[in-house]
Design a protein around this nucleic acid. Sequence first.
DNA 1: GCGCTTAAGTGACAATATCACTGAACCGCC
DNA 2: GGCGGTTCAGTGATATTGTCACTTAAGCGC
Lengths: 221, 221
Amino acid sequence: MAIGDWTEKFQGTKALPRLVRDRLLNVAQIRHYAKGQQVFGPENLPDSLLFLFDGTIRVSQTSDNGRDIVLYRVDAGESCVLTTACMLTEEAYNAEGVAESDITVIVLPKLAFDRLVAEEPAFRSFVFAAYSRRLIDLLRVVDDVAFGRIDVRLADRLLTLAGGDKEIAATHQQIASELGTAREVISRVLHDFQKRELIAQSRGRITITNKPALRGLADSD
Amino acid sequence: MAIGDWTEKFQGTKALPRLVRDRLLNVAQIRHYAKGQQVFGPENLPDSLLFLFDGTIRVSQTSDNGRDIVLYRVDAGESCVLTTACMLTEEAYNAEGVAESDITVIVLPKLAFDRLVAEEPAFRSFVFAAYSRRLIDLLRVVDDVAFGRIDVRLADRLLTLAGGDKEIAATHQQIASELGTAREVISRVLHDFQKRELIAQSRGRITITNKPALRGLADSD
DNA sequence: GCGCTTAAGTGACAATATCACTGAACCGCC
DNA sequence: GGCGGTTCAGTGATATTGTCACTTAAGCGC
């Protein structure tokens, strides 16, 4: 993908102005990851900062007994501030980022990052906004996990995963890992959804048959 | 409290150098809150940045049905970055900060904040470290709530609340609000702890009688 | 000592998690 | 096509946690 295309990617409300983008390009490298590859993790601490150019990264946390929960996703045009946090604190944590599709990232060495932050107000704002966004994302996760009902959370997640479509290609285990619960729980709730004719199921595939009702359930709490 | 004392407060690994502190003092105001007062919240969005000089702030989140959970505490010498996040994003969230003791805060207007961040590398590092620290704190909360057992979390929290002491002055409801659960749950688990002779209870007061065993339980997961 | 208020205890039940399985669908191979 | 292995999904039993509707007890002011 051509470097000139970056312009489009970082457009929008939280975008970087052209000048800053151009400076970024001068000092940054491009790196590719294949779908499923780990971008960072407890055993794989980054020494640079990542900006996602193309694709999405799924950031999740794994518990001691092997269960997962998705914290948030990094989309094209966003930065992955957890890598920054990782560099600044010595504390251990067990979050990891996995490429959810083939991705292209801009790798910015720490020194270059420091200089850009110091010299470019727009870049600084971008970074602060990214941090803030993730903090808010995590507040939402805490709220969901601590206080949310699993059927509501599942309905919400199904709609998100489906996007504009009606079909979702995912196993029960994968969805359980999204929500930080066990497969059996997801199986039972999906079975219930099926009985209520909100969805249809086949192996590894879920079809939303009554999107308005599902949305009503997702918004009901 | 004299301004000269700030020097001590902001010492330590994450401290601000004297020069930066002095600049901070030139543009900042001092404000006091009494114990129990709300420092910020959904209805009380700050237009400035807060640095805590003295006391502690408890930052918690409230669910739609009234249950609370403590996200983290801001101690003297730290900054409250959630207020920053609040200013930078329009998204609504339901976190609030309450003075846990009488507190003294340094209030830094946004413009002054921007200038300090731009001009003082040490201040910039301080702010980034604060953000990172909170992100890590929230990861821990997510992990606890999603995967932790309530007895383990309670044991851990009792030890934290006790500090070096053996006595805790707190109602079951207050502890439940720390952990994001219901009072009845805390009552039952504490009753169990009592039967196992880890603690003794009276109204509004818990005494740790077997700290090593309690710590063993807290670390057991 | 008498009410009032708040803290804590309790039983019944609902929701979610865990464990140990069974059955069903897909895949590659002969 | 049929067979065997692998992954995915279903299910019952049981444990943990959350919810509801109370009761009981402790402190406090008068």
